[in-house]
Amino acid sequence: MACVVSLRDITKSYRMGQELVEALRGITMEVEAGDFVAIMGSSGSGKSTCMHILGCLDTPTTGSYALEGVNVERLSKNQLAEVRNKKLGFVFQGFNLLTRTTARENVELPLIYAGVPTRERHQKALAALEMVGLARRAEHYSNQLSGGQQQRVAIARALAGDPTLILADEPTGNLDSKTSEEIMEVFEKLHAQGITIIMVTHEADVAAHARRVLTFKDGQIISDRRRQDGGWAGPGGQ
C-alpha cells in the first residue's frame, strides 16, 4: 500500500533559557493509506509535538516529512495552509469549536477557506454531520452541545474537506468512557471507509480500536505493534 506519511529522523527541540528541551529525538515512521494508528506513551514523551508536525501546524527542527510523497518542509506558509485545508483533518482534545457558531457553520469552516460554493458547502457539511450522527443538531450552537457531541462536530469538521489523513490528539481525553466508546465507533466507521487515522491516547481500551500502536518514550518510538486477528505482533511488544 502507498505511504501517506513518511517521517525521517524528525527531531524537535525547544530552547528554554539555557536549557535545550528535546521533545522529539529522531522519529522515523511510515503510515500506510487506510491505516488506523494509535500513539501511546507517558506524558511529555512528545506525542503532541509529533502530531503537530504531522498536522503541519509546527515544523521539525531537523528531519524530513513527506505527506503523500510531497516534502512538507519546502512548502510556504500559504501552501501549508492549503495542505491543512485539503489533506488534513485535525481533532483536538479540547474540541476547539468556534463559540457562538452553529454546528453546521463549524463544519463548513474548512470548506469556506477551500472556496466551496455555498450550496455544496451546506450539503457537504450536513453529510459530514450525518456521518457522525449529529444531523439533527446542525443548527445548534456549539456551546449548547454536550462534550461528546462537540467532539463529534469536531470530527465532522475534520471530515468535511475529504482529507486523506485525520489526526486526533487525545480525542477522548475530556470524555467519560461511555462517550469515548461512541467517539471510537465514529473512528471505526471512518477507518472502514478507508480514511487514514493517527490518534494519540492514554487509554488502552481506546487504543484497542486501532490496527497499529506506536509507543513513544522520551521523544523516541520504543515499540510498534500491529494487531493481527486476536493478537498483537511486532518489535518491542509487551
Binding site: 506558509k77 500559504n78 485535525f90 468556534l98 474548512p110 477557506y113
Partner: peptide, 16 residues
Amino acid sequence: TREIGIRMAIGAKQRN
C-alpha cells in the same frame, strides 16, 4: 488568538 489558531489549523491563510 485561539480562534485564529483554530481557523489556521483548518486551513485559513494569512490573507483570510
